[in-house]
Write a protein that binds this DNA or RNA. Sequence first.
DNA 1: CAAATATATAAGCATATGCTTATATATTTG
DNA 2: CAAATATATAAGCATATGCTTATATATTTG
Lengths: 108, 108
Amino acid sequence: MLNWEQLAECLKILGDKTRLHILSLLKEDELCVCELVEILQISQPAVSQHMRKLKTAKLVKERRNGQWVFYSLDGSNYPFFESILETLPDMQKEIEELKKKGLRVLCN
Amino acid sequence: MLNWEQLAECLKILGDKTRLHILSLLKEDELCVCELVEILQISQPAVSQHMRKLKTAKLVKERRNGQWVFYSLDGSNYPFFESILETLPDMQKEIEELKKKGLRVLCN
DNA sequence: CAAATATATAAGCATATGCTTATATATTTG
DNA sequence: CAAATATATAAGCATATGCTTATATATTTG
């Protein structure tokens, strides 16, 4: 099960504005690093570093597709994760913006 | 309702081992600062500083009783709080220890 | 009111964190 | 295979964090 250390670690990882932003975006759909860079307006390494932390905490999983690495939610380890996700704002607008700019990698 | 910043702030406050320990103790019963000092084995100011953070995040409320200040859980602001509390380990033993040592302030 | 007890605040310090730029690695495509 | 594109890692820096000790404030009690 979930131990002490892991819980604190998970919550620490969740307690960052940028990472919550990322998670709320992933709630809509899987996204690759370059798409997140475009939306979040921070450097590519900054995004990669956040993704590594989220992956280590088992909050996201990754899937490589060609040159891109797509990240998606994986909260199955944490009973409270669903509940936190629900409190995150809707990000459909930001995903739409991305499509309009023609920067969406996959064609949904 | 709960905004962006507040959620990140709350989770950041939750993401600390010592504070999770405190919350799991408060799940059993309200406790005053000197009791927490005894259990956690950190300095009194360290405990007070944690309690201030927890109070600012509205995760605990305080009640003064004579010279003592008792803290108790107050997760009503966060829909996910119950769910996190459930994953915290049982602390009845540590409270019992305190009683045995005669360091329990209130006589329950 | 003075002493005892409990708690809060201030200042300082070692370590952690989130970003940046520079660079390495991985994959595709001509 | 070389160039282009995407991502990861390394190093450095400014700021945040959790603790400590010293001290201030609050309350009770003789």
